[in-house]
Amino acid sequence: MFEILLIAILAIIVGTNDAANVFGSAVGSKMLKFNFAIIFFFIFIIIGALINAKYPSGVYQNLLNNYPLFSEVYLVLVPVILVTLISLKLKIPSSISQSIIFSLFGFALAKGFSFDNNLFFKLIYFWLATPIIAFILSIFFCYLIQFIISFFKFNVFQIDYQIRLSLIFFGCIAAFALGSNLTASIVGIYSPYLNLDINLFNNQVLINENKLYFFGSFLIGLGALIFSQRIVQSVGSQISAIKPVSALAILLTQIIILLSFSSDYLIQKINIILPFEIFAMPLSASHITFAGIIGVASFNKFREVQPTHTMKIIVSWFLIPCSVFILSYFISLTF
């Protein structure tokens, strides 16, 4: 029961925080109404979780050679929840997947479990690389969208209509991509315990893969529905003003990156082309969104970037994982 409560808290926090990553730029740029956006988010996040979450979830299992006992998982989750709550309070977006993996690392070190360092460094490599890719892709998409607009010589009302439709359509795909990623981040840690009987209010409940991912994604949707309105409406405003074209460019960037690291089919296709191998992993949607916003801001020559808040977020990318690691290490040593 306690474990379910922890997942629920984490999922609701993530829903509150991460709905902004998908529809925030569209709602923030006043192209979509919040209520309208959140319904799509709710539906597609669940579909995405049920179809693709199993792939990035596998990373948690592979990181530790000896996975913690079911009763010890809270030692990994509690530091993540604490640090995420603090970062939310400070209005800094954090990455749940990174926090959980650094917490697992702290836990493993404290308990003397062997940790797959090779996989861990690969994850860090991709976590550093994806914001850079997001930065470049968002600029590319800005140019591409501007080119299409000037090529077809649309007037502003036609552009407005096309972008509005695109934001809904791609927002749904982004929610689908985010569904697998976020759900994997939250409930992925429990994926090694599938087909487990859990006593829920004196009823035995068998947790299988689909139930786990549905449960996680449903709670993310619920968190978004209840708590995310303020964050969604203010997304980007603290970093840089977002215009509708920029919002679409950010969304396309998220879709490309998130799907490339969660869809098994896409990963196989990409690996044929790339000289190195990529694999399904939970990425930080917040970092990708942030890098996308900075990318579109650079397209506008950084005119509207708020440097203080931007620097605060970049520093937090290093501070948050370190804090989670230290907290997890000491909590695991103590209990």
Binding site: M31, V156, F157
Partner: peptide
């Protein structure tokens, strides 16, 4: 209909 939100003030 919240059309052209980024330039409606100018229009």
């Amino acid at each position: 209909e919240t059309l052209i939100p980024d330039m409606r003030g100018d229009v």
